[in-house]
Design a protein around this nucleic acid. Structure first.
Lengths: 202, 202
DNA sequence: GTCTGAATAGTCATAACTGACTATACGGGT
DNA sequence: ACCCGTATAGTCAGTTATGACTATTCAGAC
């Protein structure tokens, strides 16, 4: 008998969704528009995939769905984070920050949510990340023989070095006497990290 | 009636396979081992996916399959590039070099095969690539508001800038009076770009 | 000789992803 | 009033990807 362990949804995408819904409740279309508009460089997720992921997150109990209707527009499913979802978000975030997968840009999405953790802890997690990047850099340098036409390896080495430099600057900031303290203008309401998809009708 | 246009296999993966088989005939397991060992930072393709892609490339007529047997080991399917495959390789390479997709590292795989084109043409294609990176950089800078906790955007901007710098160095080399000319030591036999998966028994 | 572990070379049932499609609402032109 | 283009909000059939599995060969231990 075959035991098919359920394949986990891409942790980076799950983290992204939980992180966005944590900042603001959204409906599916809105969520996908935001990703497609502002995060196109990180991921190219298609709309059906977004709805699929929302279903999975809802089934796992990390988000709840509520039908809403504004005016006479068709009803929307509005999603918001549950306490269990907050826990899972924190878990995924810690996991994401402490490793560096390096095959896709979206794997770095945890960096968008680093404010969710105390600066001290974030710095500790990023130390692990730093070590994993440094190890990769060593490995890539070891394989790269400059006398062959190994542009990919050269390219990879360059990228990893840039990544390491960026991370070191971030770590320095996190550990500075006065932490970055992203001063949000006087509004106290929580807002998404970047401009939310515009919502004209209310 | 629904017209399902056949989804093309990931062009980056197709380019990678054609490029490797162009340099050396290989059997499926060997090909996947090579990718998994030396290119793990570029792609995390699984073995069944590799076999699937080989089937697709063979059906498209870009590679041929031949059963071989060495000693009393089980028979292997050995793949090699066809003339049509060479054409497709060139097409994919040109396409790959002239754009920058930027959501996955494997999208840069064309850089590994840049020697397959005349330096002059490669430089022209990379000019287009440069423009697309520069445009992305502009867009990312426009979205990034430094007063919000927009680490992803900052991170992305940094990466794109590093990419641009690397590309400019490459372009300078390609256009230098004495082209890079990767001097291969006196062996005339064609060899893969990096060490081939070891083949002990013959 | 035969057991054990590692390498080789795949296959298949099932899960994941997406191109194309459906359908309602709204603003503006005529 | 009616048409057209755009935005909203999804669904689904068909394709793609993969975790778990099967099976043979070989080297070395005993």
């Amino acid at each position: 008998m075959t035991i098919q362990t359920m394949r986990r949804p891409d942790p980076a995408h799950a983290l992204l969704f939980l992180g966005l819904l944590r900042q603001q409740r959204m409906h599916g279309y809105q969520l996908h528009e935001f990703i497609d508009r502002d995060l196109a460089s990180c991921t190219d997720m298609k709309r059906p995939t977004a709805y699929l992921l929302l279903d999975r997150l809802a089934r796992a109990g990390w988000i709840t769905r509520r039908t809403e209707r504004s005016g006479r527009r068709p009803a929307r499913q509005v999603y918001r984070l549950t306490p269990a979802g907050e826990t899972e978000f924190q878990r995924l975030l810690r996991e994401n920050l402490s490793t560096h997968a390096a095959t896709r840009f979206r794997d770095d999405i945890g960096l968008a949510f680093i404010d969710a953790l105390p600066a001290r802890e974030a710095a500790t997690l990023l130390d692990a990340r730093r070590a994993s990047i440094a190890a990769r850099l060593e490995a890539a340098r070891a394989v790269a023989h400059p006398d062959e036409g190994q542009l990919v390896m050269d390219h990879l080495v360059h990228h990893l070095a840039a990544e390491l430099a960026w991370l070191d600057r971030l770590l320095a900031r996190l550990r500075a006497p006065r932490p970055p303290a992203p001063r949000r203008p006087r509004s106290t309401a929580s807002r998404p990290a970047t401009r939310p998809a515009k919502e004209r009708s209310s």
